[in-house]
Lab assay of single mutants.
Amino acid sequence: MSIQHFRVALIPFFAAFCLPVFAHPETLVKVKDAEDQLGARVGYIELDLNSGKILESFRPEERFPMMSTFKVLLCGAVLSRVDAGQEQLGRRIHYSQNDLVEYSPVTEKHLTDGMTVRELCSAAITMSDNTAANLLLTTIGGPKELTAFLHNMGDHVTRLDRWEPELNEAIPNDERDTTMPAAMATTLRKLLTGELLTLASRQQLIDWMEADKVAGPLLRSALPAGWFIADKSGASERGSRGIIAALGPDGKPSRIVVIYTTGSQATMDERNRQIAEIGASLIKHW
Score class of each variant (00 low, 15 high):
258 V>I: 06
204 Q>R: 10
91 R>V: 02
184 M>S: 00
244 I>A: 02
46 E>K: 03
267 T>H: 10
56 E>R: 04
88 Q>M: 11
151 H>E: 13
34 A>L: 05
190 K>A: 13
226 G>I: 00
127 M>S: 07
275 I>N: 00
228 F>L: 02
38 L>F: 09
179 T>A: 06
152 N>C: 10
193 T>Y: 15
6 F>Y: 09
186 T>N: 13
135 L>C: 05
70 F>L: 05
119 E>N: 07
104 S>L: 00
263 G>W: 14
12 P>V: 14
179 T>K: 00
168 N>L: 03
122 S>N: 12
92 R>V: 15
221 S>K: 14
277 E>A: 10
144 K>E: 14
206 I>A: 09
267 T>A: 11
101 V>E: 10
97 Q>H: 13
19 L>A: 15
226 G>E: 05
232 K>G: 00
4 Q>D: 11
135 L>Q: 05
160 L>R: 06
145 E>T: 10
32 K>I: 12
72 V>R: 00
219 L>F: 05
90 G>C: 11
254 S>D: 12
24 H>C: 05
16 A>E: 05
109 K>W: 10
15 A>V: 15
60 P>F: 03
192 L>E: 00
223 L>R: 01
33 D>Q: 15
80 S>T: 11
216 G>E: 10
46 E>A: 08
145 E>H: 13
61 E>M: 15
4 Q>P: 08
109 K>S: 11
163 W>N: 06
27 T>Q: 01
64 F>L: 09
39 G>A: 11
115 M>A: 07
265 Q>K: 14
102 E>Q: 12
93 I>V: 13
56 E>N: 05
140 I>N: 01
243 I>F: 03
53 K>V: 14
238 R>L: 08
228 F>V: 03
151 H>S: 14
70 F>Y: 04
24 H>N: 01
233 S>C: 04
196 L>I: 15
53 K>R: 09
152 N>V: 13
164 E>R: 00
200 A>D: 13
96 S>F: 12
8 V>I: 15
208 W>S: 00
127 M>L: 13
145 E>K: 09
24 H>S: 11
101 V>D: 11
134 N>R: 01
267 T>V: 06
129 D>G: 00
56 E>D: 09
82 V>R: 04
23 A>G: 15
267 T>C: 09
91 R>W: 02
24 H>D: 06
89 L>W: 03
240 S>A: 15
31 V>A: 04
204 Q>H: 11
219 L>D: 01
62 E>S: 07
137 L>R: 00
177 D>N: 02
200 A>P: 13
245 A>C: 05
